[in-house]
Design a protein around this nucleic acid. Structure first.
Lengths: 232, 232
DNA sequence: CCACTGCCTTGATCTGGATCAATTCACGTC
DNA sequence: GACGTGAATTGATCCAGATCAAGGCAGTGG
């Protein structure tokens, strides 16, 4: 862990897009006083289910997953967090889900009670978080939709499309070459399938000519139309 | 549809718990001027996916479901809305999901742009919506968790527990006698199972002595402990 | 260079839940 | 009380995906 009271917001890569972008300079300085940077290495956890709920954070770079674990050890991925995303369960006394780094990640961490205090005094921040929360809710529902499709083919095809959309950060049209951000196991966890099924379905998608694979992670979509049809 | 410009907030059953409870009298009067009551009969829809996104609403009484539909007609329930709940996708130009009444429901409907304007001028409302949105997000994730369990038994057991918790409106401990608020088909839609499987699993739960059924909808939980164990 | 360790792939088999197909039940209406 | 209709149950069969079991293929460190 790397801690630092100089948040240096001026050089922050998400200063335009994170919730704190809604604050003016003076307000942001106030916020930066209660925040600190933290680096999580791949696989490290920020907060675990059951912890006392004391922190919240903005993701500066990297990627996080929000997960729950069955007692038998199976991990279920509930959400992915991208840079500028906000994590933390405001208003709740305990943490319900694990938050784990998918890759080395840089966070801007705040004490939750202090952050809540600032929210209450700064309407623009509340509004920005509301917007972000509405997006998160929409994402969660999209994911429920995806994971609820009957066939494994439709789920895998839909997930690939979702990643393609996320990869090209223009929200309208999707990238056609990108790297899968997750392992087979993590994809399985998102879709409620097994590692083997993911692997097989990817193989099928390739042999049917919908995608082309480059190593284990690289994907090129060759037939957007058929992929979309499959996923629907 | 029943429209009325006198919202009569003073007698509203959710005046203490809905988002608008955060406003003072003067502010609430302003809000009431842009709202109107609407009654939806069982099965009627407030907004359908693809509509222009022009309204949002607070549920006063009854119950709603938020759903998406596969082209093949299968309905997937993404969320249930209870009285005092807020529906509407703020900040989004188009509606993504259907909102349908599960039972006859009374709503307080607002023009979305006008409502957004009020939010921006009234921090307390933004804060109340943020709180509600955080709850919705948590609920959505709980549901993903439930629908992602591997076995049908675990899902059905979990759903019964969730209903039992919702039925006793004290959040700590759950009712042990209550009526299922959904048809078998709707439960199937929530859990990604079929009507037949739901029916069979309920039958098994009864013959195993975990629950007792009274007609098609009535449930009495006889063995909370084993039910909890099954669902986990 | 080899051994080790995570991931990923591929194959063979098994099974839980889907699907297809009747009944049966509950309830509102005449 | 008979009738009609949508919901629920129950049974028989089938199949997609889980599970079990080997390998294969990087990347890492000795």
């Amino acid at each position: 862990m790397n801690s630092n009271s100089n948040l240096a917001c001026d050089t922050c890569p998400v200063r335009e897009s994170a919730a704190c972008a809604s604050l003016n300079d003076e307000e942001r300085i106030k916020l930066s006083k209660i925040g600190r940077h933290k680096i999580l290495k791949k696989g490290e956890t920020l907060t675990a289910a059951g912890d006392e709920n004391t922190v919240c954070a903005t993701l500066v770079s990297g990627a996080l997953k929000i997960t729950s674990n069955d007692r038998d050890g199976t991990e279920r991925i509930l959400s992915l967090v991208h840079p500028a995303g906000f994590v933390g369960e405001l208003f709740s006394p305990a943490v319900h889900h694990d938050v784990v780094a998918l890759t080395e990640s840089k966070l801007c961490v705040f004490s939750r009670p202090q952050y809540e205090e600032i929210i209450e005094g700064h309407p623009a921040l509340a509004l920005a978080l509301l917007r972000r929360s509405a997006d998160d809710l929409f994402d969660a529902r999209s994911m429920m939709d995806l994971a609820g499709k009957r066939s494994a083919d439709a789920r895998v095809a839909g997930l690939i499309q979702a990643f393609a959309r996320a990869a090209s950060h223009s929200p309208c049209h999707s990238a056609d070459t990108f790297d899968l951000p997750l392992t087979r196991g993590e994809m399985a966890g998102m879709l409620g399938l097994t590692i083997e099924t993911i692997s097989r379905k990817l193989g099928l998608l390739e042999s049917d000519g919908l995608i082309k694979r480059q190593g284990a992670r690289g994907i090129r979509i060759s037939d957007h139309a058929r992929l979309a049809e499959l996923s629907d």
